[in-house]
Amino acid sequence: MSETPSTPAAEDPVVRITGLHKSFGSLQVLRGIDLEVRRGDVVCIIGASGSGKSTLLRCVNLLEVPDSGQIVVHGTDLTDPDVDIDKARRGIGMVFQSFNLFSHLSVVDNLTIAQRKVLGRSKAESWNIANTNLNKVGLGDKVHSMPTQLSGGQQQRAAIARALSMDPDVMLFDEPTSALDPELVGDVLGVMRQLADEGMTMLVVTHEMQFAKEVADVVLFMDGGVVVEQGAPAQVIGDPQHERTRTFLSRVLNPVQVEE
């Protein structure tokens, strides 16, 4: 993938975050985040655990309610108390670290239930869309399987297909491969790479530096609840300017190396 930001569009960004603050009790998790994601961009958020990157992502669809700041997704200000959050979330796909497939429903029902109950699609239409998306993630033969019959990698791909079936404007990935055994990571990253190639706008919290390097348009390094460094992957991962970024990257890229 290109390492320079794709097509500079005149239109508004899909996601615009300004001055975002969030605390859990006395713990300040986000301390003033500003972020713009343009249509078709893949933004990878990297950083140590506890840096606030997952909380930032969960704020984008208001699974965490920010204390202050503004989050505008597709022209809708989510922090406006009058906003219909259920409606706004339809356009924001979310993929979780722990997959969260509905365990009492078959794979296809996982993909159709929200289409029917939320978007009001017919059974036939939702089935078609589900089938298309399952084929896309390579699970065309798992339509009637129960989630427990799938491997972790298959569950995560089904979860991605579930989110895609709502035709989202933007997809959020919260450490999508962190719960997977190493040999199953590749399939999931492959699906995400394919989505990026098709022009999906994506925000990805990840520890997969290779993926960030190759697929991201913008890489954000977070530490202590602020964005320390952001820019093209070649710059942030290849030639980090800040000491904290360098320390983090050296730990992630050389995990065996013992310090001191």
Binding site: K87, R89, I92, M94, F96, S103, A114, V118, M166
Partner: peptide
């Protein structure tokens, strides 16, 4: 996570 997944789908 089950509730969160459902809410994130707009329910």
């Amino acid at each position: 996570g089950q509730l969160e997944a459902a809410r994130s789908l707009g329910m």
